[in-house]
Simulated scan of single mutants.
Amino acid sequence: MEDIVKISTIAQYNTMRGVTTKHPLITVIDLSKAQPMPAKTFNYGLYAVGLKETDYGQLRYGKRDYDYQEGSLIFIAPGQVIGVQPGVEVFATKGWALLFHPDLIKGTPLGKRIQDYSFFSYDVNEALHLSDKEKSIVIDCFSKIEYELDQNIDKHTKGLIASNIELLLNYCVRFYDRQFITRNIANKGILERFEYLLKNYFLSDKPQNEGLPSVAYCAEVLHLSPNYFGDLVKKETGISALEYIQSKVIDVAKERLFDRNKSASEIAYELGFKYPQHFTRLFKQKAGVTPNDYRTKN
């Protein structure tokens, strides 16, 4: 069984990359001046943002070509496991890497909302692909943080560094919004597959055997991370992936309620509800009436 190397500190990571530790809780690395990572599997105890600058060939986004080749950003959150294959860098040999310990942002505004940046839970193949102008903004943010690390640590250091990290992440939110828009055709294809998945799910015996389809299940079938999938659905439809699934459940339920040979409870079990009262509660929430009232009125 392969050993997993835990990266717990900034100093430990800097030692692997052959760079000097300027601050115990954060590092900014010009990857062209750093040693490559060893070919092992790592469990990160740090937040990481890596800019991979690309100047070669056509890259792939999942199973599709992507349209911005100037650079891409990947994000890693504490607890994630990343494998480095021989000759293949997670963070390329040309680009930048920002890593910071969770303790750095404790007590700061960023620390209170770090969980809002859902792209830290995206898969690597769901990277943020940057235009040349966007890349220059990201590098400028890295440079501002690096400037602070070159100053003597004082009472302002933590706040200024955290603010610059937050600025970088807020730009990334904007850039991801742009990416969802520019990939509208590809995203529509995912929504069509999502709709097809739900349709076939309720035509099968999976609801009785496995229960209601979850967001995580749908994301896995569609080969996406749950967070990326959820954000994509939200951007495209204006509702969450869970709400989308629930709406589909209610649509199917409405059709089946016209069959008077089945009780509302039987229909609830067919749809994957463990308890009929949960079905009744959701139906009333979405349709405004109980299943039996809907059947009577129609």
Rank of each mutant, 00 (worst) to 15 (best):
E2T: 07
I10C: 12
Y13P: 00
R17S: 02
G18F: 10
G18Y: 02
T20H: 12
I29T: 08
L31Y: 01
P38G: 03
P38S: 08
E53K: 15
G62N: 06
Y66M: 09
Y68H: 14
G87R: 11
T93E: 10
L99C: 10
F100M: 11
D103I: 06
T108K: 14
Q115G: 05
S118T: 07
F119T: 00
E134A: 09
I137W: 15
E146T: 03
Q151A: 07
Q151W: 07
I153N: 12
D154N: 14
K158Q: 14
A162P: 02
L168E: 01
L169Q: 01
Y171M: 09
Y171W: 11
R174S: 06
Y176T: 00
D177F: 08
D177A: 13
Q179H: 09
I181A: 13
I185F: 12
A186T: 03
N187M: 08
K188E: 09
L191K: 08
E192D: 09
K199L: 12
P207K: 03
L224G: 02
S225Q: 06
N227P: 04
D231P: 01
S240R: 02
A241C: 08
I245Y: 01
K248P: 05
I250V: 15
E255G: 02
R256Q: 03
D259L: 07
N261R: 13
Y269E: 02
G272P: 03
G272C: 11
F273L: 11
H278P: 01
H278Q: 14
K286Y: 11
G288D: 01
